[in-house]
């Protein structure tokens, strides 16, 4: 597994600065949580790493080399909305197979699809289904299997549970933890939900108005926050005492 590092990355659209000098490192086999509210630039950071957002300053390196932004990326992304991230006209198997490197033969392809589906706890028979027949949680698992099919060095998970119902959110989070344990994946896990990040991430970065305001081990950042904004986020995530 590899190290993904953002070095003083800035993204600007005209006069509007989305990311301002962001430096962050996803160490090998580690899960880094990235939290912050909508519009703070969380998703833009991930999109910049795969060439979907233009980097106006700084560098994004994978093991010291610039991350390629053409062809099959060694960094794969899983998107927020599982209803938009799967082509409604392609079967689950076709979707997963498309991301595989080197165009394997039919037999090898089917075996690999079955292996990946098993990895994300889906029945191999699902390979023949269209996404319309799957629930949100199942779709998100297919999206994860597609990302794994490309044999990535690092996975970027962009709010992958926020469009899901609570009953399936848990299953996806368990899967993320299993995969980190079994495959040793490096992952940037983006979420606005502190409880979710706490559950999966080794360390946490807090992004506010395009800048990282706090970074450290999860227990430390959430247990003893130093920045006022982190404390504000934590307060918002804890239950209201006065009305209960």
């Amino acid at each position: 597994m590899s190290v993904l590092s953002f070095q003083e990355v800035s993204v600007r659209y005209g006069a509007h600065t989305v990311l301002d000098d962001v430096s962050l490192e996803v160490a090998a086999g580690q899960t880094v949580g990235l939290v912050g509210e909508s519009g703070c630039g969380k998703s833009t950071l991930a999109r910049a790493a795969v060439g979907l957002a233009p980097v106006t300053g700084g560098r994004i390196l994978l093991d010291g080399e610039p991350v390629p932004t053409r062809g099959r990326r060694p960094v794969q992304m899983v998107f927020q909305d599982p209803y938009s991230s799967l082509d409604p006209r392609m079967t689950v198997g076709e979707t997963i197979a498309e991301a595989m490197p080197d165009r394997p033969g039919r037999k090898a392809r089917q075996a690999e699809v079955a292996r990946l589906l098993a990895l994300v706890h889906l029945d191999a028979a699902r390979a023949l289904d269209l996404p319309g027949r799957l629930s949100g949680g199942q779709r998100q698992r297919v999206a994860l299997a597609r990302a794994l099919a490309a044999r990535p060095e690092v996975i970027l998970a962009d709010e992958i549970t926020s469009a899901l119902d609570v009953s399936v959110q848990g299953a996806v989070l368990n899967l993320i933890r299993d995969m980190r344990r079994d495959l040793g994946l490096s992952m940037l896990f983006i979420s606005h939900n502190l409880a979710v990040v706490r559950y999966v991430a080794d360390s946490v970065a807090v992004l506010h108005h395009g800048r990282i305001v706090e970074y450290g081990p999860t227990a430390q950042v959430l247990g003893a926050p130093r920045h006022a904004y982190t404390r504000q986020l934590l307060a918002a995530a804890s239950p209201l005492k006065e009305h209960t």
């Binding site: 795969v50 060439g51 979907l52 062809g71 991230s85 082509d87 498309e98 991301a99 490309a150």
Partner: peptide, 10 residues
């Protein structure tokens, strides 16, 4: 997003 995913997959 599936178009973005396909592009990322090369």
């Amino acid at each position: 997003d599936y178009i973005a995913a396909a592009r990322i997959a090369g």
